[in-house]
Amino acid sequence: MKKIAAVTLSAVMVLGTFALTSCGSDKSSSSGDDAMSQLSNEGTLVVGLDDTFAPMGFRDENGDLVGFDIDLANAVGEKLGVDVEFQPIDWDAKDLELSSGNIDCIWNGMSVTPEREEAYSLSNKYLNNNIILMTLSDSDVDVTSADQLADLNIGTQVDSAALEMLEGNEAYDTFSENITTYDSYDTAILDLQAGRVDVIAIDQVLGEYKNNNMDGALKVCEYSLGEDAYAIGFRKDDTALRDAVNDAIKELIDDGTAEEISNEWFGTNIVIFEEV
């Protein structure tokens, strides 16, 4: 992937308009301007992520962090002239990690939901996705309507967009007691293979990636839970930082870099740039 050699004019203008703060300032209590100034001063953007969420951000066979979001975040860092530090977190504790200042943003295939729009200052939507149901390829199960879920055991990840879509489904009351949540989708898939759940509710980009690496052991059910899109979550006050990242992503889309990254990980361009 080509490297971006220079800090863009727009990033320089954004960074240059704010006075620098000390490295010891408290990110959790900073205003948006202060947070942007601190980023300029420290030269590091700390990204919180679930490091098991392939192909967005995960560990390869050597234990290195790789993925679409890893490549995109590093490219944004080059545009902004800052280093990017990736901080693995417990996904269920992401709100605390962000509010306490341990990370600057949540960037790891995070779906846009009404609750997250309320909780965070979200970037533009940058990637298309769907929430799907998957089962074993040799299973007789094939969900064609929500009504069938009442007779099935369902697995999904805790605090995920898939769980929120299940909870928001019109038939939720009929299958609510059948849902098991897991710390990671890897564990949910293991339970699917062991027969402890019949289907899993999962992000399409993750499910299809996992299936490709499982030699087609899974299949996608006909019924899906709905369309989805990913965004980056910042603290409510960190609008200047959010806007700078948005500007950098737009530049990466315009110069073709984002498309190159998408093609590398998905074989097609599913990058978008839409306001939340």
Rank of each mutant, 00 (worst) to 15 (best):
K2H: 13
K3W: 14
I4N: 09
M13W: 07
L15E: 00
T21E: 03
C23W: 00
C23K: 05
G24S: 11
G24F: 01
S29V: 15
S31L: 00
D33T: 15
D33S: 15
D33M: 15
A35Q: 10
M36Q: 08
L39Q: 06
L45T: 00
V47R: 14
G48Q: 08
L49H: 13
D50L: 05
D51R: 01
F53A: 10
A54F: 02
P55G: 10
G57L: 08
F58L: 07
R59S: 12
V66T: 11
G67T: 14
G67E: 12
G67P: 05
F68T: 13
D71S: 07
L72D: 01
L72W: 00
L72G: 06
L72I: 15
N74V: 11
V76H: 02
G77A: 06
E78A: 14
K79R: 11
G81D: 01
G81Y: 04
V82C: 10
V82K: 04
D83V: 04
V84R: 05
V84K: 03
E85D: 11
Q87T: 05
I89E: 09
D90Y: 12
K94T: 13
K94N: 11
E97M: 11
L98F: 09
G101N: 06
N102Y: 05
N102V: 09
W107P: 07
N108W: 04
T113G: 00
T113A: 03
R116D: 03
E117C: 12
S121C: 13
L122F: 02
L136P: 04
S139Q: 09
V141L: 03
V143C: 04
S145P: 08
A146L: 07
Q148P: 03
Q148K: 12
L149M: 12
N153W: 09
G155T: 01
V158W: 03
D159T: 08
A161K: 02
A162I: 08
N169I: 04
E170T: 15
A171L: 02
Y172L: 05
F175E: 12
S176R: 06
S176N: 14
T181I: 13
Y182H: 07
T187H: 12
L190K: 08
D191E: 10
L192K: 10
G195D: 14
V197K: 04
V199R: 04
I200T: 07
D203M: 05
V205C: 12
Y209Q: 11
K210A: 12
M214G: 03
D215C: 02
G216W: 07
G216K: 04
A217G: 10
A217F: 09
L218D: 08
C221D: 06
C221P: 04
Y223T: 09
G226F: 04
A231E: 05
A231C: 10
I232A: 08
R235I: 01
K236W: 05
D237Q: 15
L241Q: 05
R242F: 02
A244W: 00
D247L: 06
I249T: 14
K250C: 07
E251A: 10
D254F: 01
T257E: 12
E259Y: 00
E260Y: 01
I261T: 07
S262Y: 11
S262A: 14
W265F: 12
T268P: 01
E275N: 06
V276A: 11
